[in-house]
């Protein structure tokens, strides 16, 4: 039977993946053109820089979420861990007088610990990832509220705090590109190398695609899962701190949207909800699409309330497209 049919199938399937990528790219371009027409400011260099700057936290969290999805798990806690990172950083500086960069390091360690807990409970204790990260999300929510009492930390006095998010390295059209954007770009390059050129990265594909195969190929599944969750924790915390640095304050709840947007970004970029498939470049594109949509809606004057609605709709649409249905 099958020789010819198999070849046909392969072509059709390969086309499907590339076609999806092309569709997403076209959609991004169309979306940008639309907002460009609707708002004269949208395509101005200054706004494009703003676009990248505001993409930083989401971009980092999308990496986190993509790698978790790659192993077939969700990380629901990313948004809350981002808040936690920002809060711990600012709290240490303001209330405890810890030097800015030492506090920054401690913030990263907090993310690392959160990720480790999620990873170890998922990998070794076999707790479903969404439940353990959901529970963690609530626990960190409690911790944040205990630290802050629900208030934000204003950081106007602390100049070195703002360096990462506000210092201008290059100036384009009077708008500077802060270090955070370079961190984002670097993170994506590293993410690409990790997934494409390291054994660990390739192993993650196998872990998500076929656990049994991974086990028999001698791949350490638990280590892979702990790795992605730990990475997720660190990146989320970093994202939260870069957000704090840019906004000049530590906010108790910044992460409301991030978990959702990150899933939307990765899934639009072709990451399979069932695991075993992701693409760093397309994750970036998908994430940018979500950012562009948000920024564009703001620019054309759609109230923030509608963005909840739009976000929900986009996530549902993205997942719907990605869900593999048997005929």
């Amino acid at each position: 039977m099958s020789e010819t049919t198999q070849i046909v199938k392969v072509k059709r399937k390969m086309n499907r993946d590339t076609r999806q990528s092309i569709v997403v790219l076209i959609a991004l371009v169309v979306m940008m053109a639309f907002f460009g027409i609707m708002s004269e400011y949208f395509l101005k260099p200054s706004n494009l820089v703003t676009l990248f700057v505001s993409a930083v936290p989401l971009g980092l969290i999308a990496i986190a979420q993509s790698s978790c999805l790659l192993t077939g798990n969700f990380d629901m806690s990313v948004g809350m861990v981002a808040s936690l990172g920002g809060i711990i950083w600012t709290w240490l500086i303001v209330d405890l007088g810890v030097p800015t960069y030492a506090a920054f390091a401690i913030g990263l360690v907090a993310g690392l610990i959160s990720g480790l807990i999620a990873g170890v409970t998922t990998a070794y204790m076999k707790v479903p990832a969404w439940i353990s990260t959901f529970a963690l999300m609530q626990i960190w929510n409690g911790v944040i509220l205990i630290i802050t009492n629900g208030d934000a930390y204003r950081m106007t006095k602390y100049n070195d705090f703002k360096w990462l998010g506000q210092f201008k390295i290059f100036s384009i059209d009077g708008v500077g590109i802060p270090p955070a954007v370079f961190i984002l770009i670097l993170a994506y390059i590293l993410f690409y190398i990790l997934l494409k050129y390291t054994k660990l990265g390739r192993d993650l594909y196998v872990i998500g695609g076929n656990q049994e195969a991974a086990r028999n190929a001698g791949i350490n599944i638990n280590r892979g899962i702990v790795f992605v969750f730990t990475m997720s924790g660190v990146l989320s915390s970093l994202a939260g701190m870069l957000f704090a640095s840019r906004s000049g304050s530590g906010q108790p709840i910044i992460g409301d949207f991030y978990s959702m947007h990150a899933i939307a970004g990765s899934v639009i970029g072709g990451t399979a909800m069932t695991g075993g498939k992701t693409n760093p470049i397309m994750t970036f594109v998908g994430m940018m699409m979500v950012t562009v949509l948000q920024n564009g809606l703001n620019m054309i004057g759609v109230p923030a309330y509608y963005q909840h609605l739009v976000t929900g709709a986009i996530v549902i649409l993205a997942i719907w497209v990605q869900t593999e249905r048997r005929k």
Binding site: R202, Y205, V206, G209, N210, A213, A214, N216, A217, K277
Partner: peptide, 21 residues
């Protein structure tokens, strides 16, 4: 094995060297 163990999204070459590229 009876249940064949493929990483479905990877290429044949990668599957041959699974876990040991």
């Amino acid at each position: 094995p009876q249940e064949m163990q493929m990483a479905r999204h990877l290429t044949v070459a990668e599957n041959i060297f699974l876990g040991n590229p």
